[in-house]
Design a protein around this nucleic acid. Structure first.
Lengths: 116, 116
DNA sequence: CCAATAGTCAACCATTTGGATGAATATAAT
DNA sequence: ATTATATTCATCCAAATGGTTGACTATTGG
């Protein structure tokens, strides 16, 4: 609750999710559950290594968790971190609405002046 | 309503907002309302030109609108586009929950089998 | 034991990005 | 008319990004 939104974390998350391939990976993970690196890579027209790097970026952003069983790495989505971005968006919107409300009050008091 | 989420748009928006300076610009705009380029730039320890470029990126992502009055450009936040990202996050979460529900059903029917 | 499989790491490359600076353009002020 | 202000455009640069390939490590199966 009330988690502190670190700016660097936020940047890392948004950058991670700003790439099509990585969003696609996340989508696959939420619909299929945990997947191995090779299984994920099979969905993309690029090398295994490239996909592996994308996974690393997602992992560093905390959007994905890795469980290693023998030689196999199981990757699972961690949607929790997305709430950080949502809370930032929410903050923006609330500031926005606060300002609009303040403007409204200003207009109302002008009206009252005029009504005298 | 039900706006079609274009993948490239989404990438552009998320990349735009993945930069600290640009997030800061958006924050300033929502709290102050429309601002001139120079006024925005005054808040940052970088050249006017750099800020101008950041504004351009935000503009191309549709997160900001520009109204030109004479030589002055007034920049205003356009929070509407942020809903695109929210709807993507929402989609992810709903897929996620669908899958969990499906797993649940699976377990329940196994239970029923065992109960025979 | 040996070969195959699952992954990462390292080096390399082209492109993009975030910044700087200098010039150009358009408007406003004197 | 000239100068000052507001802003973008163009060029340049270093660093980051997204991709490739080749080598390396670790685990598993025959």
């Amino acid at each position: 609750m009330g988690e502190y939104v670190n700016d660097d974390d936020l940047s890392r998350i948004l950058k991670a999710v700003g790439d099509t391939t990585r969003r696609h990976i996340l989508t696959l993970l939420v619909q299929e559950g945990a997947m191995r690196v090779t299984a994920l890579a099979a969905h993309f027209d690029m090398s295994l290594n490239a996909v592996s790097k994308h996974i690393k970026v997602l992992e560093e952003a905390g959007l994905v968790a890795r469980k290693t069983l023998g030689r196999e790495h199981f990757i699972a989505a961690e949607l929790g971190r997305l709430s950080l971005t949502e809370s930032w968006f929410g903050k923006l919107k609330s500031i926005w609405e606060l300002r609009l409300a303040a403007l409204d009050n200003l207009l109302v008091s002008k009206d009252e002046q005029n009504a005298e």
